[in-house]
Protein backbone atom coordinates (compact mmCIF):
# COMPACT_ATOMS: atom_id res chain seq x y z
CA UNK A 1 0.00 0.00 0.00
CA UNK A 2 1.39 3.34 -0.99
CA UNK A 3 1.77 6.23 1.42
CA UNK A 4 -1.09 8.14 -0.18
CA UNK A 5 -3.50 5.22 0.02
CA UNK A 6 -2.52 4.71 3.67
CA UNK A 7 -3.08 8.38 4.45
CA UNK A 8 -6.41 8.41 2.63
CA UNK A 9 -7.55 5.39 4.62
CA UNK A 10 -6.54 7.13 7.84
CA UNK A 11 -8.56 10.29 7.15
CA UNK A 12 -11.55 8.52 5.62
CA UNK A 13 -13.83 9.12 8.59
CA UNK A 14 -12.54 12.51 9.71
CA UNK A 15 -11.90 14.90 6.87
CA UNK A 16 -11.04 18.36 8.06
CA UNK A 17 -11.57 20.96 5.42
CA UNK A 18 -10.25 24.48 5.10
CA UNK A 19 -12.21 26.92 2.98
CA UNK A 20 -9.93 29.02 0.80
CA UNK A 21 -11.54 31.83 -1.17
CA UNK A 22 -9.28 33.14 -3.94
CA UNK A 23 -11.40 35.98 -5.29
CA UNK A 24 -14.66 34.13 -5.76
CA UNK A 25 -18.02 35.86 -6.22
CA UNK A 26 -19.22 34.23 -2.94
CA UNK A 27 -21.80 31.99 -4.61
CA UNK A 28 -19.64 28.89 -4.18
CA UNK A 29 -18.82 29.98 -0.61
CA UNK A 30 -22.53 30.13 0.22
CA UNK A 31 -22.95 26.64 -1.25
CA UNK A 32 -20.05 25.41 0.90
CA UNK A 33 -21.82 26.79 3.97
CA UNK A 34 -25.03 25.21 2.71
CA UNK A 35 -23.32 21.82 2.57
CA UNK A 36 -22.37 22.23 6.25
CA UNK A 37 -25.96 22.88 7.40
CA UNK A 38 -28.10 20.11 8.96
CA UNK A 39 -30.01 19.83 5.69
CA UNK A 40 -27.04 18.16 3.97
CA UNK A 41 -25.05 17.45 7.14
CA UNK A 42 -21.58 16.60 5.88
CA UNK A 43 -20.61 15.58 9.40
CA UNK A 44 -22.14 12.23 8.44
CA UNK A 45 -18.84 11.74 6.60
CA UNK A 46 -16.78 13.35 9.33
CA UNK A 47 -16.26 16.56 7.42
CA UNK A 48 -15.46 19.47 9.70
CA UNK A 49 -14.56 23.04 8.87
CA UNK A 50 -11.31 24.22 10.45
CA UNK A 51 -9.84 27.68 10.71
CA UNK A 52 -6.27 27.04 9.62
CA UNK A 53 -4.68 25.23 6.68
CA UNK A 54 -2.24 23.66 9.17
CA UNK A 55 -5.09 21.58 10.58
CA UNK A 56 -6.68 20.73 7.23
CA UNK A 57 -6.69 17.55 5.17
CA UNK A 58 -8.58 19.07 2.26
CA UNK A 59 -8.62 22.60 0.89
CA UNK A 60 -11.86 23.79 -0.70
CA UNK A 61 -10.57 26.21 -3.30
CA UNK A 62 -13.16 28.60 -4.73
CA UNK A 63 -12.59 31.47 -7.13
CA UNK A 64 -10.42 32.07 -10.19
CA UNK A 65 -7.21 32.79 -8.16
CA UNK A 66 -6.74 36.49 -8.73
CA UNK A 67 -3.26 37.96 -9.07
CA UNK A 68 -3.65 39.65 -5.70
CA UNK A 69 -4.58 36.41 -3.92
CA UNK A 70 -2.05 34.15 -5.69
CA UNK A 71 0.85 34.53 -3.18
CA UNK A 72 -1.56 33.98 -0.27
CA UNK A 73 -3.03 30.88 -1.91
CA UNK A 74 0.47 29.45 -2.45
CA UNK A 75 1.34 30.19 1.21
CA UNK A 76 -1.86 28.56 2.48
CA UNK A 77 -1.32 25.43 0.38
CA UNK A 78 2.33 25.23 1.47
CA UNK A 79 1.21 25.38 5.11
CA UNK A 80 -0.86 22.23 4.65
CA UNK A 81 0.55 18.95 5.94
CA UNK A 82 0.95 16.02 3.50
CA UNK A 83 -1.06 14.50 1.91
CA UNK A 84 -2.23 17.68 0.27
CA UNK A 85 -5.73 17.12 -1.09
CA UNK A 86 -7.51 19.85 -2.98
CA UNK A 87 -11.11 20.23 -4.10
CA UNK A 88 -11.26 22.84 -6.88
CA UNK A 89 -14.82 24.13 -6.70
CA UNK A 90 -16.91 25.88 -9.32
CA UNK A 91 -16.26 26.94 -12.88
CA UNK A 92 -13.73 29.50 -11.65
CA UNK A 93 -11.75 27.05 -9.58
CA UNK A 94 -11.67 24.40 -12.30
CA UNK A 95 -11.20 26.30 -15.53
CA UNK A 96 -11.17 29.99 -14.69
CA UNK A 97 -14.86 30.49 -15.50
CA UNK A 98 -15.79 33.74 -17.22
CA UNK A 99 -12.38 35.21 -16.29
CA UNK A 100 -10.31 32.39 -17.77
CA UNK A 101 -8.26 34.66 -20.08
CA UNK A 102 -8.32 37.83 -17.99
CA UNK A 103 -5.06 39.59 -17.13
CA UNK A 104 -5.92 39.82 -13.44
CA UNK A 105 -6.62 36.13 -12.77
CA UNK A 106 -4.52 33.00 -12.97
CA UNK A 107 -7.34 31.21 -14.73
CA UNK A 108 -8.16 27.93 -13.12
CA UNK A 109 -6.45 25.29 -11.09
CA UNK A 110 -4.41 23.81 -13.96
CA UNK A 111 -2.28 26.95 -14.19
CA UNK A 112 -2.03 27.26 -10.41
CA UNK A 113 -0.67 23.72 -10.32
CA UNK A 114 2.19 24.74 -12.63
CA UNK A 115 2.96 27.75 -10.40
CA UNK A 116 2.93 25.51 -7.32
CA UNK A 117 5.30 23.05 -8.97
CA UNK A 118 7.68 25.91 -9.80
CA UNK A 119 7.59 26.90 -6.13
CA UNK A 120 8.27 23.36 -4.98
CA UNK A 121 4.83 22.68 -3.52
CA UNK A 122 3.62 19.17 -4.30
CA UNK A 123 -0.05 18.25 -4.44
CA UNK A 124 -1.13 14.67 -3.90
CA UNK A 125 -4.62 14.59 -5.30
CA UNK A 126 -7.02 17.05 -6.89
CA UNK A 127 -10.70 16.65 -7.62
CA UNK A 128 -12.34 19.10 -9.98
CA UNK A 129 -15.95 19.90 -9.13
CA UNK A 130 -17.64 21.88 -11.92
CA UNK A 131 -20.79 23.91 -11.36
CA UNK A 132 -21.70 27.58 -11.32
CA UNK A 133 -22.24 27.67 -8.42
CA UNK A 134 -21.60 24.11 -7.29
CA UNK A 135 -24.54 22.33 -5.72
CA UNK A 136 -24.01 21.17 -2.12
CA UNK A 137 -24.65 17.63 -3.41
CA UNK A 138 -21.89 18.11 -5.97
CA UNK A 139 -19.48 19.11 -3.17
CA UNK A 140 -20.44 15.97 -1.21
CA UNK A 141 -19.99 13.89 -4.36
CA UNK A 142 -16.56 15.50 -4.92
CA UNK A 143 -15.44 14.71 -1.37
CA UNK A 144 -16.60 11.10 -1.73
CA UNK A 145 -14.75 10.85 -5.06
CA UNK A 146 -11.62 12.24 -3.40
CA UNK A 147 -11.78 9.44 -0.84
CA UNK A 148 -12.65 6.84 -3.47
CA UNK A 149 -16.10 6.05 -2.07
CA UNK A 150 -17.97 6.63 -5.34
CA UNK A 151 -17.23 5.93 -9.00
CA UNK A 152 -16.33 8.75 -11.36
CA UNK A 153 -19.08 9.41 -13.90
CA UNK A 154 -17.37 11.95 -16.21
CA UNK A 155 -15.35 10.50 -19.06
CA UNK A 156 -13.78 12.04 -22.13
CA UNK A 157 -15.87 11.21 -25.20
CA UNK A 158 -15.17 12.24 -28.77
CA UNK A 159 -17.72 11.25 -31.39
CA UNK A 160 -17.97 11.88 -35.11
CA UNK A 161 -20.99 13.75 -36.42
CA UNK A 162 -23.34 11.41 -38.27
CA UNK A 163 -22.96 10.67 -41.98
CA UNK A 164 -26.54 11.16 -43.19
Amino acid sequence: MSNLAKALKAIRKSIWVYHLNSGSCNACDIEVLDALTPYFDVERFGVKLVGSPRHADVILLTGPITRESLPKVVRAIRAMPRPRLILALGSCGVGGGIWWDSYSTTGGFKKLEDILRENGVEIDRVVYVPGCPVRPEAIIYGILLLLGAVEQKSKRVEVYASES
Partner: peptide
Amino acid sequence: ELSSTSIEDL
Protein backbone atom coordinates in the same frame (compact mmCIF):
# COMPACT_ATOMS: atom_id res chain seq x y z
CA GLU B 1 -22.32 14.89 -10.60
CA LEU B 2 -19.48 15.96 -12.88
CA SER B 3 -16.53 15.71 -10.50
CA SER B 4 -13.38 14.16 -11.90
CA THR B 5 -9.80 13.59 -10.87
CA SER B 6 -8.37 14.70 -14.22
CA ILE B 7 -9.20 17.79 -16.24
CA GLU B 8 -9.22 15.83 -19.52
CA ASP B 9 -12.27 13.86 -18.36
CA LEU B 10 -14.25 17.09 -18.22
